[in-house]
Simulated scan of single mutants.
Amino acid sequence: MITFALPFPALDPVLISIGPLAIRWYALAYIFGLLLGWQLARHLVSRPALWGGTSPMRPADLDDALFWATFGVILGGRLGYVLFYNFGYFLQHPAEMLMVWKGGMSFHGGLAGTLLALVLFARSRGIAVLSLLDVAGVVAPIGLLFGRIANFINGELWGRPSDAPWAVIFPSGGNVPRHPSQLYEAALEGLLLFAVMLVCVRLGALERPGRAAGIFGIGYGLGRITGEFFREPDPQVGYLAFGTTMGMLLSLPVVLGGVLLVVLSLRPRTGAAS
């Protein structure tokens, strides 16, 4: 019995339609996240004091890094979704694997793709890998914030049934009040984590290669695991052993990798990071 629930706001996932061309909020979230992150990254590397006196790269280096990261996000995100969330379907419909416009992206896949792209880029330019990953770790919550808000606007990735007074009835979620888990994740993985990253930068995290990237990994992983307690699992995957979800399992290596980077950043500095 439904006692109280908030109606889903009448938000069209398509912002503007021009003939067959449709500009969607989700696409804009990726674009704005990348562009704002790029601007903040340029600001960070243009301030040598944040790096202990010498910036490990030039702002111009980040112009090309943005291009590499964009492909890493898109290709990795799609491949991650195919492998982790709907492999059986795509095995039967391989032609749809690259049809990104039909939906289906994985953050963990996008993270892996971006890491690989940035490592390759840094190696090709002679830039310290860990320092470039630190920059990415500081700015990544911006994209997460916009992305989760776009998920809410799309009425997708909604939460588990709830009797909370702020529960929402999503158009595709049945006549059941649900946690607006997209907004929970926007707050945890976006706003809160971004604030933490800025504080860490002020406290000198960028002076120790790998520290900011590690803090991001820990913060994102814990935030995502927390959000998964309120988020409805993808129906084709469902709950896994002991009530865990795919999102929880994929986030554990992110947390462990973050811890490893932070521990490594505590070592005495013996030379340039790589």
Rank of each mutant, 00 (worst) to 15 (best):
M99W: 08
V14S: 14
P20R: 11
A10M: 10
T245G: 01
G190S: 11
G204N: 08
L79R: 01
G137F: 05
A273Q: 06
E96T: 13
R123D: 08
L193M: 04
A140N: 10
G110Q: 07
D234G: 00
C200Q: 14
A117H: 04
P165M: 09
A29P: 02
A41K: 04
Y89T: 01
F67S: 13
H93F: 12
V176D: 08
V259E: 06
L133F: 12
R267S: 07
A60R: 15
G37T: 00
G113S: 10
G53A: 13
W101R: 15
T114I: 15
F152V: 03
G223A: 15
Y30E: 06
G126V: 00
D134Y: 13
A112P: 00
L130K: 15
G221P: 11
T245A: 04
I169N: 06
F67W: 12
S162W: 05
V255C: 11
F87D: 03
G227A: 14
L6E: 05
G80M: 09
L98M: 15
L6M: 14
T226C: 02
V201Y: 05
Q182E: 12
R231C: 07
L44V: 09
S265W: 07
E189Q: 10
G227W: 00
W51D: 03
E185H: 03
G109A: 07
G113N: 07
G238V: 12
A41T: 10
G159D: 14
G37L: 10
Y239P: 01
A112T: 06
I18E: 04
Q92F: 01
A128L: 06
L79P: 04
G77D: 04
D163F: 11
D61S: 12
P268L: 03
I169H: 03
Y220T: 07
F8Q: 06
T70A: 15
V259K: 09
P233Q: 08
L35T: 05
